[in-house]
Every structure is written in C-alpha cells, then in structure tokens.
Design a protein around this nucleic acid. Structure first.
Length: 968
RNA sequence: GCCGAAGUGGCGGAACAGGCAGACGCGCGGGUCUCAAAAACCCGUGAGGGCAACCUCUUGUGGGUUCGAUUCCCACCUUCGGCACCA
C-alpha cells in the first residue's frame, strides 16, 4: 500500500466532509488542547510529538462518543520576528505569516485532527484587540497598574523582562546577564491572586460542566466560595433543593512536579512583621521574619544596600563614606555575582535600632545578602538560629546569642522553674568584638537558669553552625521555657499588643511585569496626558493597531513605537489636550494567557468570547505541552482565568483540568537537536521517507510519552514493517473472501506474503484463544490510551497481530473471525495511524469514516474467563494520565500470553512451584483443585523431589491460582 | 544545600494494590527463498558454567520486613530536572 497516497486521500476526505468540525451544541464535551506554536520556520519533531499525542487523544475521545473541541493557533508575536526582520529586511508580519503558512501546511500533512475554522493568530488585530480589552478591564479593577520599580533589564534584547523570564540571572531568550534598572512599567497584579493560585493547586474545585460519561451527579451547589466573585450570583440558578447528591469537586490533575514548581515559585511563608525603631529618631524599621520566636536572639539588624533608607542612615557619620562605597559596589554587581559566592559582605552604618521587646540597642548593618525585593528589605540578624546571619556574624565578629535549645536538651524539672534569665546589657560590635561565639555560649549557658544537658556543640569549641530547628526558648524573658512553635504566636501577639508588629504572610511571587520596549507585540491601550495622567483608550476605539510603517526595528532601549509620530502623538480622550500613546507593547505571555478561551468563540467581534460559549467548553479537559512553561505560561493562564472568572466571564476557576507534559525529543545520542549540530530531523523528511502513520507509530512506540525520546530512525523501519504486516494479513484474508484466489496468488508471489499458506488452513470455527486475546487487547488499549501509555498500547496491538498470524497459520481461525480481528484492529490503531486505519476500514467495505464509528468495547464474557483464572483484568477504567497519587492508583491489564489463555480456557491454571521462593517447576491443575491435593501434586513432581530429598519441609504455602512455595 | 523524578539485557522499554523479571520492538547471530542482493519469512538472543538434560547468578549498592522483594521500609551512591542567600 502506498502510504503517502492514502494520507492525501484521507486528509482530503476529512476536510471535505468536515469530520473534525467542532459541534455547535456539545452534549458531552471534551476539550483537547496542545499548547499553540510559535511560528519560527516550520514545525519540528518536538511539535510533531506534542501534536500527535493530542491528536491520538482527540480521535480516541471522538470515537468514545465525545463532542470534541480540538483547535490550533499561533503564538505569533515575539522577538524572533523582529530579529528576522532586521536580518532579512522584511516586515515582522510578513515573516510571521509566511512561517504560519508553511507550518500549517506541514501540520495538515501530519493529519492532526484540528478544526482549522477556529484557528487564531495572535499578531492580528482581531486577536490582540482582546488583549487590550482584557488589559482595560484589569486596569479598571486596579489589576493593571503602572509603577516605577527596580526591574529586570536585558541588555541583549534591550527590553525589560518578567521575573519568570529570568533564568539563573540570565535572559530566557538570549542568555545574557540580566541587570536591574529603575523604570516606570506596567504590571499585572498577580500577587493579589497568590493565595488562590497556591490553594487551587490542591483544592477540590467545582467544574461547571461535569463529564456526563464519568459523573451522573447533579449540581446543587450554591454555597459561597471563599472568594467573592461576580459569577457566583449566576451559580444560584443551579440550586435544586430536592436532595440530589452534592456536586463532585475534584482538584486539578496536574503532574506533581509542576504543582510543586508553582508552589515553590509562589513561595508562601507565614511569619511576622516586627518593627524596630531607629535610635533615637524613632523611624520605623520593619522586618519580616518567619521566626519571631528567635526575636530575643537578635544581635544586629541588616538592611539591603539598595534600600532607600540605607544612605540616610549613615548620613553625616564617620561611616558614611564606607557605606556609600559599599552600596555602589553592591548595586553595580549583578544579583548573580552577589549571590553566587555565598559569602556575605556588609558594613556597619553607625546607627542602632531599639529592640521592640527588650529595648536594647542593636547595631544596624547593611549587607549584600539582604534582598531589597523580598520582605521589607530589612532583616533581623539572629546568628544563633539562622545560618546566613551566623556566617555574617562570624565574619564580622558580631555576638551570637542562643535563644532556642533542642527539646531533648532541656530537662523537664528546670522547665518548671520560673526564673527569669538576666537580660543582656546593651552591646555594640566595638565592645563585643573580641567575644568569640563559644565563650558567649558557655557564658549564656552558665547564666541560664535552665540546665543545659547537652549544648549544641561542645562548650569549649565555637559554634560551627546555627541551630535552625524548633526547640525550647531560653534567654527570652517572659517567653523562656516555651516551645518555639508556640512562642512564634505568643511573641507576635505581644508585639501586636505593643503595636510593634503583627502576623504577616509573604510570597516570593512578584507582580507580572508586562511592558516591553519592543515593536512586535500588542500596543498597551493607554494614553498619557500631561493633565489627566494615564488615561485608558475607550473600549470603542479598540483595537489600538500596531502601525505598520515602522522604520527601524532595531532595539534601542525604548520602544520603536515612540518614533512613529502618527501613532505616538494623539489627543487625550478625556480633555482632548495633546497627549501621547504608551509606546510599549505587552509581554507575549499575555497573548497565551487566555487563548484557550478565544477558541471557544474565535470569531466573536463584540467580545473576546461570550460567557455562554466559554462555559460550553471550559475547562480544557486535557492540556498537553512541555514542562518548560511550568512557572511561566501555566501560572499566567491560571491567573487570567481567575481574573475573568471573578469578572463573571467564565464559570471555571482553573483553565485546565488535566495537564500532560510530554518529554523532549533528542537525537539518538541523547543530544538536543539543533541546526548548528546538524542533527535535526524534520517531520517533512519523515513523511516523505516513511509516511506519517509509520512515523507516528514509531514516535508513540519508542518511549513513554512523558519521557524524553531518543530518536532513532531504525525504529521507524520497525513501524513500517508492522503496518505492512497488518496490510498483508488483511489482503490475504479479504482477497479470498472475494474468491479472488488467483490474484492473491499473484500478490503472494510479488510480496512474498504467506497468504497461500494462510488461506489453505482456514478453519471452520473460531480460535478461542485469539478471541479472548482480542478482547483483552481492546481492554488494554483503552486503558493505555486513558493513561497516556501509548507505547504499551502499540505493543499490545503488535502482540495481537502476532497471535492473529500464528493462529491463522495453525489453521485455527475462520475467515469471519479474521475479518473481525482486522476490523477491531483498525479501530484500536486509528488514534495512532489514522490514515492507515481509514484505509483498512474501507477495505473491509465499511462506509468511511472510521472516526464516526464507535470505539469497541470488550466482551465481558471473554474477560471473565481470564478473571476466573485470576489473570488480572480490572473491570472499571478509572485511570488518569500523569497522576502518581497512590490511593487512586489503578490496576492495569497485564499483557496476557496465549499460554495463559489456553490454560484458562480449559479451566486450568498454571501454578508456579517454588522452593524457598525460587521458581523450580510449573504445575498445570484444574482451577478448583483442593489445596491439599495441590500440595501433594507439587511435592511429587520429580524436579521438586530431587531437590527436597533429605531436607526437612518446614512449610508449604499455596496461593490459589498463583503459586506454591515450599520452604525447606 | 533544599525539593522532586529516576536507576532493569547491547539499546528503547515492559511487569510493580509483593507472586514465573526482561512483554513488545530495535540491534545482533543463524537459516529459508534468490545466480546474487534487497524485501519477506523462520529460529535464536540477560550473564556464567556443562556434551547434555540441567545448574548458578542477575532489576544502582548495602541492610531490613516477608514463605517470597524490580515492587514495601531504612541508609548510601549515581543521573536528570527544579529552586537556591526568600529572612
């Protein structure tokens, strides 16, 4: 069979008959989405893997009777288009649209079942105007704001970057060192959603449109969610009070490592804000700490060099010059350089702060290990209980005061005594610089009324590290003797009482910096007026179109749009005075943060989408893409979904119910494919050489979908062989049913196929073994598709084919049975090799398309025979891809061998006979033989006898239908 | 350093709510067909030993639980990924 010809034929057919068009009124919907593509040249083999996975799922689900939304589009804004434009002197738009057209053609040739009618291209005004619309809505709610702050600046791309785009201190695109600049920029207030973004990773959520195939429960929900939202009023309508079962709530099913990366990124920490006051002027120096229980161990305060107060502190003091020098040095060095060494530098500012509880004077230092961007930019130094503070204190000979002891080192009796420890007198680095940590500790231990049984280190030696664990508080005034965990609360409460502190929660997550000083992006719909300030462009004037007549795309550190007078200069919508447009464009991650919603209503020119249509399809049931987006795109799209949810535009609070991360495709040596290495394999080449279906089969079979795949062309040869074998089998079977023996003889001569041999041996009855194998394979393929285990599904099909051939050769198969096998085979193969499956389906004289014919279900009776022989075949399929949770773990159908089936058919079971757990022999017995008889039989086996002779048999363990273990 | 995932033949990998390790494929070796080759088909293929039937060893290493561990527990080693002065 000519694969390429069949591909063209079926692709034409699908398109003409609109087989994969999205149903307008879905009854049981399934939204499959692969991350859309950045159009740089043609699609590569990584895309090929991504999209064929999605395609297999879409086709499988369609055959299971779901109404499918499976769209595609292009993430078309971005820097490479400008770079290409500069290099090749063509407009970014031209370059982008050309690439899209090339890639689209390839994708169509790959035969992915997209509904191309819903295609979106983000660089066109009918898409990006809705970025602007969303921006304006967020601006209205205060979720988009402009602020001057220290931001990441990439000198290579000459633009600012979001935190998520800085990787190990370098730019995600050009890998240059990122520096800091103070600039006025636009931000999205993602921090306001930090808590929800964190909680909803695990929280059971209500999904507005439950899957009718999996859930029959009705919605009766109206209980208010924790967050007040506009959409909640709409939910009232669902309320039926007739005691129907509560709505199913389940958390998103995302890979654990993606969740944990996001948790990490959000970085919640609970603690306290504590206010130290500057001595003597009382200026507040708030610090954030997660360890308020160690407050009595504070021996210094450090402030970030970039902190605006730092300069002020040393003003007119002898220390001023040193401090200014230090600030300059620290600010100049990139954060990377400062943090890489791990060594801590600082200088004394010459000032002191007052301890909020003891009133002691504590020296204020400025230190480079204190980050300006986290917490308050000021830190309380507790060297005894924080390793960083410890290293710093050690380096500058600052005192170390122990206030927490390990629980087991404090005896119970002493805890009961109620003495107060002596308070330390005020100290300064000058007076205490000679006190070495060890001596101080020894001294403190002596002075403490609590008996120290085993101090953290030998008292004669200095501390070597801070004690960071919880324990019992000592030397802490009224709190001494408390457990540190309780102490955290007590100390904070006390501070709150004195109005010198409070409980506080902090996140590492920063607001999302969205402005870019580049041309090829969505213009920010804001007009700056000297009298009215930043004025939003009225909704009616959207889109703010990107001007096309730009002279110079070369980045200059400010947006090229600033030089396009007819764009830049405008009038204020409020006062009609002279004004100018915001020259910056949006981060392209804005485009991708809501595109999945646009697909649900892609042609709407009144709204980005109507809530009704979004609710028809949302959430994405299965989202598929690479892990590289774990803390970028996947966080942003969750954020924007929640924002739109709160505004009442979508019911769901999360964009995607399930997420699957496929592995990378590497060359056969495990190297990343790149043009410079010359090891790139293009889908176009594979299609030409082997055909798409063989390439797809090879891709699926080569490795588990979530793992990286070492691409080896020899595997495609195997896939071609596999498809050819099926085809030849089908030919040999079907040609005789046409009683066209002569032709089959010719074919067999030409192809060397064994059809003659096969045909002469057709039996009048069916092979039971093959029949059971067939149903076991349906079961296994179904389950494997559900859990994204494509390689084992393909393996199961190969096993089935092996047995089909073998049984046919043995003369055990009837023509009818062979045809039935081929038909089922076509169904099971169709998600993987769709064109080939259509061809087989047609050959069986079925009306196309096979994708409009239902997925087969296994015959329970056939499976029962296996069950009775305790060959595990689970009955309910409740498998979820990508979830590793133990409780919900599913049992999967094991591969079943022909021998096992044969034994099962005879009502017999094959038992394994072990001695001391090692397999020695096998025993075939009727399934219901009593245990005693089994034992006797096993012990009488000659092999067993010879090895148990002269040994004492201690025990015989019989596991019904499985094994016998003889312990000697 | 912290968090996460993983270590099984020459290779990709399978099995794991504890029960025949190596399914399926690639590669390799041998054969059939052929003047020859390709294709196709058949047989073999974890390692070691024995003429042989057979025997011994084997799922990163070392312990443990168990009649029985690739699967569960503890420690360690290695690889990959993420985070990394976050107070």
């Amino acid at each position: 069979m000519n694969f390429q010809e069949a591909e063209r034929k079926w692709q034409g057919f699908w398109e003409e008959k609109k087989i994969f068009a999205t149903p307008l009124a879905p009854k049981k919907k399934y939204y499959v989405l692969e991350m859309f593509a950045y159009p740089s040249g043609d699609i590569h083999i990584g895309h090929f893997r991504n999209y064929t996975i999605g395609d297999a799922i879409a086709r499988f689900k369609k055959k299971q009777g779901y109404d499918i939304l499976h769209p595609f589009g292009w993430d078309a804004f971005g820097l490479p288009a400008e770079e290409a434009a500069i290099k090749r002197k063509i407009h970014p738009q031209e370059w982008t649209l050309n690439n899209i057209s090339v890639s689209r053609t390839t994708l169509k040739q790959v035969g992915i079942s997209y509904d191309w009618d819903r295609e979106i291209i983000t660089c066109l005004p009918d898409y990006y105007r809705w970025n602007q619309w969303i921006f304006l809505k967020m601006f209205e709610k205060g979720l988009a704001y402009q602020a001057k702050s220290l931001v990441n600046w990439c000198p290579g791309c000459k633009t600012v970057l979001a935190n998520e785009q800085v990787q190990e201190g370098t730019c995600w695109r050009c890998h240059q060192q990122v520096t800091k600049k103070e600039l006025l920029q636009w931000f999205f207030k993602i921090t306001e959603y930090a808590e929800r973004l964190l909680n909803d990773l695990d929280k059971p959520l209500k999904w507005e449109k439950p899957d009718p195939l999996l859930e029959t429960e009705h919605h009766s929900d109206s209980e208010s969610t924790a967050v007040p939202d506009a959409a909640s009023s709409r939910k009232q309508k669902d309320q039926n009070s007739d005691g129907v079962s509560p709505p199913i709530r389940k958390p998103i099913e995302w890979p654990e490592h993606v969740k944990s990366m996001q948790k990490n990124w959000i970085g919640k920490s609970e603690g306290a804000k504590i206010v130290f006051k500057l001595d003597p002027d009382g200026i507040e120096l708030p610090v954030f700490t997660t360890r308020p229980d160690t407050l009595f161990g504070v021996t210094f305060i450090s402030i970030a060099p970039e902190h605006p107060l730092t300069r002020e502190l040393a003003k007119n003091l002898p220390q001023e010059k040193g401090v200014l020098n230090f600030i300059e040095k620290a600010v100049l060095e990139s954060e990377m350089m400062r943090t890489a060494a791990g060594d801590k530098n600082g200088v004394f500012t010459g000032r002191y702060a007052l301890h909020p509880l003891t009133g002691e004077k504590v020296p204020i230092w400025t230190a480079d290990y204190v980050l300006a961007g986290y917490g308050t930019g000021i830190v309380m130094g507790v060297p005894a209980h924080d390793q960083r503070d410890f290293l710093f204190a050690q380096k500058y000979r600052l005192p170390i005061k122990s206030v927490i002891l390990p629980r087991e080192q404090v005896s119970m009796q002493t805890l009961l005594s109620d003495n107060q420890p002596k308070t330390e007198s005020a100290y300064s680095p000058e007076t205490l610089s000679e006190s070495i940590p060890g001596r101080l500790f020894k001294q403190l231990s002596k002075e403490s009324p609590y008996k120290v049984l085993n101090p953290p280190t030998q008292t004669d030696e200095p501390f070597t590290q801070a004690y960071e664990e919880p324990g019992i508080m000592i030397n802490s005034g009224e709190f001494s003797g408390l457990d540190s965990e309780k102490g955290k609360k007590k100390v904070t409460e006390k501070l709150k009482e004195k109005k010198l502190g409070d409980f506080e929660i902090r996140y590492k997550l920063r607001d999302w910096l969205i402005s870019r000083q580049r041309y090829w992006g969505t213009p920010i719909p804001i007009i700056h007026c000297s009298s009215c300030g930043a004025v939003p462009v009225p909704e009616s004037e959207l889109p703010v179109k990107l001007p096309e007549n730009v002279q110079n795309f070369i980045p200059q550190g400010r947006s090229p749009l600033e030089d396009v007078k007819e764009f830049f200069v405008t009038v204020c919508p409020k006062c009609c005075g002279q004004a100018h447009r915001d020259p910056d464009t949006m981060d392209t991650f804005v485009d991708s943060s809501w595109y999945f919603l646009r697909y649900t209503d892609s042609k709407n020119n009144k709204l980005p989408f109507t809530p009704e249509k979004a609710d028809q399809w949302m959430p994405v049931d299965q989202y598929i893409g690479g892990v590289e987006h774990a803390t970028g795109h996947l966080l942003y799209c969750r954020f924007i979904t929640k924002v739109l949810h709160d505004m009442g535009y979508v019911s769901v609070e999360e964009p995607a119910f399930k997420l699957f991360n496929h592995g990378m495709v590497l060359d056969k040596h495990g190297e990343v494919m790149s043009k410079s290495k010359g090891n790139v394999v293009s889908p176009a080449y594979l299609m030409e050489k082997f055909g798409v279906d063989a390439a797809r089969i090879a891709m699926f079979f080569a490795a588990p979908a979530e793992k990286e795949l070492l691409w080896n062309e020899e595997g495609v040869g195997g896939a071609v062989r596999f498809l050819n074998r099926i085809w030849r089998y089908a030919e040999s079977v079907l040609e005789t049913s046409e009683e066209n023996a002569r032709q089959s003889e010719d074919t067999s001569r030409q192809t060397g196929s064994p059809s003659q041999e096969l045909l002469s041996k057709y039996s009048g009855s069916d092979s039971e073994v093959l029949n059971i194998k067939l149903h076991a394979t349906i079961q296994k393929a179904t389950e494997d598709l559900e859990r994204f285990s494509f390689h084992t599904a393909v393996a199961a099909l190969m096993e089935l084919l092996n047995l089909m051939e073998e049984e046919t050769k043995n003369g055990a198969v009837s023509k009818l049975q062979a045809e039935k096998c081929i038909e089922i085979f076509a169904h099971l193969l169709s998600p993987f090799a769709p064109h080939f499956a259509e061809e087989l389906w047609e050959k069986l004289k079925n009306p196309p398309s096979i994708f409009e014919s239902p997925w087969p279900t296994p015959d329970e009776k056939a499976l029962l025979i296996l069950k009775s022989a305790s060959i595990s075949i689970p009955s309910d399929v409740t498998i979820t891809a990508n979830t590793q949770n133990k409780e919900g773990a599913s049992v999967t159908a094991k591969p079943v061998t022909a021998e096992q089936i044969r034994a099962a058919l005879k009502g017999e079971v094959e038992l394994v006979v072990q001695i001391n757990g090692k397999v020695k022999d096998h025993l075939i017995i009727p399934a219901n033989l009593p245990e005693e008889e089994i034992k006797t039989k096993a012990l009488n086996l000659t092999k067993i006898k010879s090895q148990t002779d002269g040994k004492e048999i201690k025990k015989v363990i019989v596991i019904p239908k499985k094994l016998i273990n003889i312990v000697v």
